[in-house]
Amino acid sequence: MSRRLPQIHNVVEEHIGPFRQQQLDLEFSNGERRHFQRLVSGGHGAVVVVPMLDDETVLLVREYAAGLHRYELGLVKGRIDAGESPIEAADRELKEEAGYGAHSLDVLRSLSLAPTYMSHQSWLVVARQLYPQRLPGDEPEELEVVPWKLAELDQLMLREDFSEGRSLAALFIAREWLRGGA
């Protein structure tokens, strides 16, 4: 079913770090009025990189996750800087976080975090034909790089220290894309 988007009557905005919190006064097509809150990203989005060491092995990184106060295993990821394309940001983040560059980078799609209340989007990029190259990054410590076989995603998806939704979704999407004759 196709519906007309709600009419926005008013927006009240407050800045919170890199985000803007907005309170929307909405009217739906059936006449119902509601207030919704959303976080609007202040940047240019982010990238989630699936770095393929070879046809069967992805490189994961282990880094401190302040939100959960633990070390978390996941994919290379980071923000897209002003003037960067998702491809350029993916290559830079890969060099900063994992110590590799890529000769082949493919943008597969965008992923949203929580589209009912956030505008943030991350671009899923598959990186292949890797070569060693490190750039200084903004991480407070060097990240541990962990090779993982795509054939063992069933084991990875149940690990307590691998819980970030973008990383999990990106691996399954990339695996299917790679199987399809990339």
Rank of each mutant, 00 (worst) to 15 (best):
P18W: 10
A65I: 00
A46W: 04
A66L: 06
V61Q: 03
P51T: 02
V40C: 09
R34Q: 11
E13T: 14
H15F: 02
G67H: 08
E32P: 04
H15I: 11
H69I: 05
I8L: 09
Q37R: 12
R33I: 00
F19G: 00
E13F: 02
V11H: 01
Q22N: 02
Q23F: 10
R38M: 15
L39Y: 15
E56K: 12
L68I: 09
L60C: 09
E13K: 15
K95T: 00
R34I: 13
E88L: 07
A46N: 15
E32A: 14
A65Q: 10
H15E: 09
D25N: 06
R33W: 02
R20I: 12
E84D: 14
A66N: 02
A89I: 03
Q37W: 11
L53R: 03
H15Q: 14
D81P: 02
L53W: 03
D54G: 00
H35G: 03
E27L: 05
H9T: 07
A82V: 10
G83T: 07
V61P: 05
H69V: 06
V11E: 08
E14P: 00
L24E: 07
D25S: 13
A82W: 06
F36A: 14
G45W: 01
G83Y: 06
L75C: 12
V11T: 10
H35Y: 13
Q21T: 07
R38L: 13
E88G: 06
L60E: 04
R38F: 02
H69N: 14
Y64G: 10
E63D: 14
L24S: 03
Q23W: 14
L59E: 01
V58I: 07
H9N: 15
H9Y: 15
K77V: 06
G83I: 05
G43S: 11
V48L: 10
L26Q: 11
E84G: 08
N30I: 07
I8V: 15
E32F: 13
V11G: 00
G45L: 02
L68H: 12
R34C: 07
L68S: 07
A65K: 07
V50L: 10
A66G: 05
L60Q: 04
R33Y: 00
P51A: 03
A66R: 04
